[in-house]
Write a protein that binds this DNA or RNA. Structure first.
Lengths: 239, 239
DNA sequence: CGCTTTATTGACCCGAATCAAGTAGAGTGG
DNA sequence: CCACTCTACTTGATTCGGGTCAATAAAGCG
């Protein structure tokens, strides 16, 4: 089983043997989290960073009236809170959407590696800037796309990201999230998510039953979503 | 005139004299951009990074049907595309909302400084993670807040950010953006922005005439906006 | 002082929320 | 093995927030 962070980074730039070894060392301390459990809570001041090895996790923000918004969905290979190395205090929760296996790394250790290996440091920095780029794509979709396009965009993004870490085969992948979660990612009501999902299925471009997604017509889906993967920085070159 | 990036960073951590000098050296090459002009265009592969010294700039994304969405508003002290150091290609425009003075720094030079000064490198990294945190706050507001709360939140954020770089006096500041820009930041129509703005004025918590904003009741505005500045990482401590 | 851009207002309409019920599975325990 | 429960999913009816269209007023500004 290859470390998904290695896959994530190696897709974007060549990694030296030393760098791969450093990543392996950073991600030795494993832990299991049950679905629904919290990895990080609002108000925490983490002293270690969390990498997802298996499973899905969501960044959840709660408003005063109990409304929830999910600002990101994280998958294997994502450093969920690398930035906690730099930030004061978490302003939101990160919760396991499915059972997860994670790797914990103490901040001092992360810092030591980044100071010793500037190129690897840049790649970790890169991973946080890709997070920011995904946030921007979500902002655009929330602000100016129809629910149908937004949902299609979400599926395109998930397909590409899961593909990078080896979690797709052909155009099939597992996406074990509820319509409730999806509603809180798209900023819609559950009812409307359900109806939009039916519209999307009706196009025939994609099937989604239970946790199994299958993209039947990638180009058509891309078209609906106006999806351009540039923001995911999939080009491999020296960084 | 103090370098606004120094103000931005010095608010979050102590800077050594060497670090301040390095920042000054990085930001020597000034340039003027007229309102409406492009700093960066979608598709560009920048080989230098842009810091805003004076003025406002917006990250603008255009959809196929001509709709525009603004994913971020940048102010003096913001490194608008520090991340272009790491990314392939810009997937959006950055345009001057007002006349701007910017500083350009070649990527090799930025890289050299980050490799030589790991602490300063971390602070620059921090600035990009604060961008990401602001993106998340916008996602939450777009997805789950009422237009009135969203607008109030936007004003709270702008006040705090402008305050950090010395562009406020008491609760007054200049915010020279049109309702058209605002609509594209809030994901609303111009008409509705106009009406929401009237509702906000009607509360009496804030006045906004032309480019002049004045917050009359900060606590009440914060309340409406459910604004908690934690995500802006204003605490000063070693990073 | 025209000309263009921005701000404002009103009428109308539609997309998505809300409310309310009902269905379907997946566990769980007797 | 079946009743019970809990959660997720689905559907219909109704409401309402916000979009669209259209016209006018008010600034800027060359």
């Amino acid at each position: 089983m290859i470390n998904p962070l290695v896959m994530f980074l190696a897709r974007r730039d060549d990694l030296s043997a030393d760098e791969i070894a450093a990543i392996e060392t950073l991600t030795l301390n494993h832990q299991e989290i049950k679905a629904g459990g919290a990895m990080i809570r609002q108000g925490d001041r983490p002293h270690s960073s969390i990498l997802i090895l298996e499973g899905f996790a969501a960044r959840a923000h709660y408003l005063a009236d109990g409304k929830r918004m999910i600002s990101a969905l994280h998958i294997p290979g994502d450093y969920v809170d690398l930035h906690s190395l730099l930030l004061d205090q978490m302003d939101h929760d990160v919760t396991a959407v499915t059972d997860c296996r994670i790797a914990l790394t103490g901040h001092p250790e992360v810092r030591r590696v980044t100071e010793r290996m500037p190129h690897l440091a840049r790649l970790l920095w890169l991973s946080t800037t890709i997070d920011a780029a995904m946030h921007r794509a979500w902002i655009v979709a929330l602000g100016r796309m129809s629910p149908l396009s937004h949902m299609a965009h979400f599926l395109c993004e998930m397909y590409v990201r899961l593909n990078v870490v080896g979690h797709t085969s052909d155009y099939n992948f597992r996406l074990p999230i509820t319509q409730i979660d999806l509603a809180d990612m798209l900023g819609l009501s559950v009812v409307h998510v359900n109806r939009t999902l039916q519209d999307l299925r009706a196009t025939g471009y994609v099937t989604w039953a239970g946790a199994s997604v299958s993209i039947k017509d990638w180009n058509a889906l891309r078209e609906v979503a106006q999806f351009d993967p540039v923001y995911l920085n999939l080009q491999k070159h020296p960084r």
